[in-house]
Design a protein around this nucleic acid. Structure first.
Lengths: 207, 207
DNA sequence: CTACAAAGGTGAGGCTGTTCAAGTTTTTTG
DNA sequence: CAAAAAACTTGAACAGCCTCACCTTTGTAG
């Protein structure tokens, strides 16, 4: 069985993460002090820093949980993609988008994305980048599945096309979280405008 | 003529910006203190903050000068685009990329991009976004010019295609600045892999 | 030229993320 | 079980961004 020390460690880390997730959402990332998290998690400030390297890392850890869910939510679509090319691609993208604000505020997303760009070589920066890669891989996988079905031109390289589409959906999402007034519906429209023409171009019966 | 006060103000702002540009590049953004800039510009810390709202804003101001040059450098290609669709699009993108590190380090780019995402509603955040919009508009303009020449399908909406291509070149650039080991040549290859298939699809004689 | 007003500069101090030497708890050793 | 070692927690102290009450300089009116 796990020793006392080990259990206490796990419990402390969990309490810190729960405190962060709750406070960041309710009070906003900026205005939450490490001291606040320490108090809520019933540890000292120094202990928080034994579990996470920086405040940004704590945020990334909370965001990572959500991204993991998004990736999981994408799997069913890959297993059984909608019939039409555009429905398949947009369906996957909408699935991502619709999950994105379940536990995270736009401010949290902005800060997390900014952190991952500014500190790409920290463990948390790498972690975020890795999850991005997995999302892009899902898109690539979907393209591949559509090619296997004979719906997307075989001449196209699935991974390059996947990267292109992922870039588009990712960038549109960044614009979305940058603008507090933008709705999910508007985000969908934005990405559809970019994706639909491409979907028709890459489909075999395009002309 | 401009009064003494006005001239002194302009001179101080210029000295601060020059100090920032020099020190950020030579010592790295992180390790330069506002105090250092103030000393080099021969003003007080408080004065620095009369001209720029935050340290990030000072960086954005230096980056903005470079982006302005990049936009200027793109104009000649728009005026007289290369003959083939893929050469035109990649030519414009390479022009952007080749200018990007003339006065800015990768760390400066990372920090500036992160800042613009994290603080989209500050003047400097808006300024950065506006320059992005102008770059995307150049790409759109190029697509439009190729359509006028009859080289790109008329059925495609230039602005949506421009946005798609800009997203791709922008995201590839972010990956480039996130990875200190990546070379400009590798960046070119990355974006070419995404753009070339698209260039063939959108060209009129594609099939 | 003097007096007053407006504009702007100044730097000590506040705030908050982060560190680290000292103390405490858990585990291991004999 | 006692003692020693290892692992971990703690919070005071530090660093650097930023503010603001006060002061100096410039412009203007009489």
């Amino acid at each position: 069985m796990a020793g006392l020390r080990e259990r206490q460690k796990a419990a402390r880390e969990r309490r810190i993460l729960e405190a962060a997730s709750a406070k960041f959402r309710s009070h906003g990332y900026r205005s939450v002090k490490i001291e606040d998290l320490a108090e809520m998690a019933e540890v000292s400030v120094g202990t928080v820093y034994n579990y996470y390297e920086t405040k940004g890392d704590i945020l990334i850890a909370t965001v990572a949980m959500e991204v993991e869910e998004v990736i999981t939510a994408g799997a069913p679509i890959l297993a059984n993609p909608p019939l039409r090319v555009e429905d398949a691609i947009l369906g996957l993208i909408y699935q991502y988008y619709d999950h994105s604000l379940e536990y995270l505020s736009k401010e949290m997303w902005r800060t997390a994305i900014a952190h991952s760009i500014e500190h790409p070589n920290t463990p948390s920066g790498r972690r975020y980048a890795e999850q991005d890669r997995r999302l892009a891989a899902q898109v690539t996988e979907l393209i591949g599945a559509l090619q296997d079905r004979g719906q997307v031109r075989q001449s196209l390289v699935a991974s390059d096309l996947g990267a292109l589409i992922f870039n588009a959906l990712n960038q549109a999402f960044v614009e979305f979280v940058k603008n507090d007034d933008m709705t999910l519906a508007q985000l969908r429209d934005q990405i559809a405008a970019q994706i639909l023409p491409i979907a028709h171009l890459i489909a075999v019966n395009s002309d």
